[in-house]
Simulated assay, not measured.
Amino acid sequence: MSDPRPAPRYGEYATPEEQRAAIREPAPGPAPAASAPHRPAQTAPATTVAAQPTRLADRIITMILLGYGLLTVLTAIPQILDFTAFAQTWMDAVGVDGEFTNTDQGRTWGMVGAIVFGIGWLITAALSWLSLVKRRVTWWIPLVGAIVTFGIVSACLVVPLLGDSAVAAHFGAA
């Protein structure tokens, strides 16, 4: 004898209690006690290497930017350590008539600028490395590091330049 009804689908004839038991879901009831700790939902990490993004282009761009930054720092440090020559070149380029005479302050601030350049690159490289290890998008870290470092170094170099009488006279501060 054939049954005219369609065959039941999985769990179709199970009672709600049997369904919950099969999927190990607790029965509905009162809310959990207030003393029970609340655990926020967490995203499961990728379980296989294939499921983790490699971001090869990001890694290549990051390394190129860090390499360019290192080259820039290594060539800029000797220039700003000889601050008198650096300042005179800058004054000639800007069109300031005169000779740079604020050499003591220039030597001090040139040294500070060189140290900031080196430390800025090291911090940028370390942050980039940590981000690469965590497989995050990293290309922007060397760019932001360069902007921040260059801004601080520029402020250091402006102090002795504006303290020079020829520069002050050129910009009307004297």
Rank of each mutant, 00 (worst) to 15 (best):
A36P: 03
V49T: 11
W140A: 06
V49K: 10
G67V: 07
A50P: 01
W121T: 02
R135Q: 13
T84N: 03
G118D: 05
E25F: 05
R107F: 12
P142W: 00
A21P: 11
L56R: 05
T138A: 14
G118Y: 07
V116M: 05
D82W: 05
R24Y: 09
I60D: 06
H38W: 12
I23W: 15
D58N: 14
K134E: 14
P26R: 14
A46G: 11
E99T: 15
L65Y: 01
G120L: 00
L81S: 10
G95D: 12
I23Q: 12
D82S: 09
A85S: 15
A21Y: 06
L65F: 13
D92W: 03
I147P: 02
A125G: 09
A125V: 11
W140C: 04
A87G: 02
T89L: 08
D92K: 04
K134N: 15
I23G: 07
S131I: 00
H38V: 13
W90N: 09
A51N: 07
E25S: 03
I77E: 05
A22W: 09
T138E: 04
L66W: 03
A50S: 10
I60C: 07
A114L: 05
L122A: 14
W121Q: 04
A33V: 12
F86N: 01
L74P: 07
R39L: 13
T72P: 00
P32I: 03
H38T: 08
I141H: 01
A57R: 15
E99L: 10
I115F: 11
A41T: 06
F83W: 03
A41G: 11
I119G: 06
G67E: 04
T124I: 01
M91I: 00
N102G: 02
R59N: 13
T101H: 09
V112Q: 04
P40L: 04
